[in-house]
């Protein structure tokens, strides 16, 4: 039982840290603001959330698990909101997409108005 718990904890910790690492690599490699937001808001969020759950499972206590799950839900539900706000703010203040972007229907519709 102990070994099972330890294995689950180890799996969560390692996969969480690898997700966070991939997010940081994406943050440095992606060409523009909006693509970087993908990396930070998805892979980064999932990485830290997995590590939070690992604490709850490692403790093997329902109260602590409930608390870590509360933190998990809070973090997962707020990350898209902040990413969306940032994307909206930076698009509205005119930061352009990178040159390799295929299309920008939002800009076109604003120009028509």
């Amino acid at each position: 039982m102990d070994i099972l718990l330890a294995l689950v904890t180890a799996l969560l910790v390692l996969s969480g840290s690898i997700f966070a690492f991939a997010a940081a690599v994406g943050l440095n490699r992606f060409p523009d603001l909006y693509a970087r937001m993908h990396a930070a808001s998805k892979a980064g969020t999932v990485g830290s959330a997995l590590m939070l759950i690992a604490v709850g499972i490692h403790a093997a206590d329902l109260a602590i698990l409930a608390r870590s799950l509360a933190g998990f839900f809070f973090f997962v539900l707020t990350a898209p909101v902040s990413a969306h706000l940032l994307a909206k703010a930076s698009h509205e203040s005119g930061y352009p997409l990178s040159d390799i972007s295929v299309q920008d229907e939002m800009k076109r519709s604003q120009a028509e108005i």
Partner: peptide, 26 residues
């Protein structure tokens, strides 16, 4: 290169520090 880029990175730093705290808790 731009301010939003830095804000994204700072936002992600918070997440990474949360991961740090979780690891130290374990």
């Amino acid at each position: 290169p731009t301010l939003p880029d830095r804000v994204i990175a700072l936002d992600m730093l918070v997440g990474i520090v949360m991961g740090f705290i979780a690891l130290i808790a374990i």
